[in-house]
């Protein structure tokens, strides 16, 4: 077994005076596509922010690729897509990517590659604020792909996309994992859970289960992942 890409030990996070993550421990295997699932407000985005090192933490430790989360050594190796598209609405798609690529020291060809990856090649000269919500989200995703990161942390990357695009993106995620990247992907949609190698189920900031989709089915006796998840959430209450 290789070392895990992410190792979290007793992570505690306080936001707005509330204990959002009251002591979370888990691991994400290197080279896997791991799904992070849980109800709205369960702390998925908070956990991801802690992993990429932008979240103030109250205690515990987060190790990413063998370094403390957020350390300088990780900044070229971790790609992060925030839940709300974090790109400049007043720039074109290509100008956005050229900028973020420049910050990461990437050549211009990389921009064209990621544009193709997210199927936005024809929209390179469009101003981002004129794009649809799903298109804008894909620009944000493309920016996260720029540095050929070893770890990709994607906060709901497929929300609002049609089934064809969703399938294409999940194929891309697995292709990247084959090229030895690790992906942590949050989602609300259970049919996406089935596309993950491993799942982390969160509820109110606690880890409800860490399992593969088939283990989850076996444990709950449900065929349907939606039903399995509901059963877990309710039995854990």
């Amino acid at each position: 077994m290789t070392a895990p890409a992410i190792r979290i030990d007793d992570l505690r996070v306080v936001r707005g005076g509330a204990l959002v993550l009251p002591g979370l421990s888990c691991e994400v295997a290197a080279g896997s596509v791991t799904g992070l699932l849980g109800p709205s407000g369960s702390g998925k985005s908070t956990l991801m922010r802690a992993i990429v090192g932008v979240q103030k933490v109250a205690g515990g430790s987060v190790a990413v690729l063998g370094h403390p989360a957020g350390s300088a050594a990780l900044r070229t190796r971790v790609g992060y897509m925030t839940q709300a598209p974090s790109v400049y609405g007043d720039l074109t798609v290509r100008e956005n990517l050229v900028f973020f690529g420049g910050v990461l020291g990437q050549p211009k060809e990389t921009v064209e590659r990621v544009l193709t990856d997210v199927a936005l090649h024809e929209h390179g000269t469009r101003v981002v604020s004129s794009l649809s919500g799903g298109e804008r989200a894909r620009v944000s995703l493309a920016a996260a792909l720029l540095g050929e990161p070893s770890l990709l942390v994607l906060d709901e990357p497929t929300v609002g996309l049609d089934p064809v695009l969703r399938r294409d993106l999940w194929e891309l995620f697995h292709r990247l994992a084959l090229q030895s990247a690790t992906l942590l992907v949050s989602s609300h949609v259970m049919d996406e859970a089935d596309r993950c190698d491993a799942l982390l189920l969160l509820r109110e900031g606690r880890l409800l289960a860490q399992a593969t989709p088939s283990e989850l089915r076996a444990r709950t006796g449900e065929r349907d992942l939606d039903a399995a998840f509901l059963r877990l959430v309710e039995s854990g209450a």
Binding site: R49, G53, V54, Y80, V87, F100, V103, L104, G105
Partner: peptide, 13 residues
Amino acid sequence: TSGTLERLMTTPL
């Protein structure tokens, strides 16, 4: 507010 600063803070910038 747009999150671009948060993204930049995860880069070598």
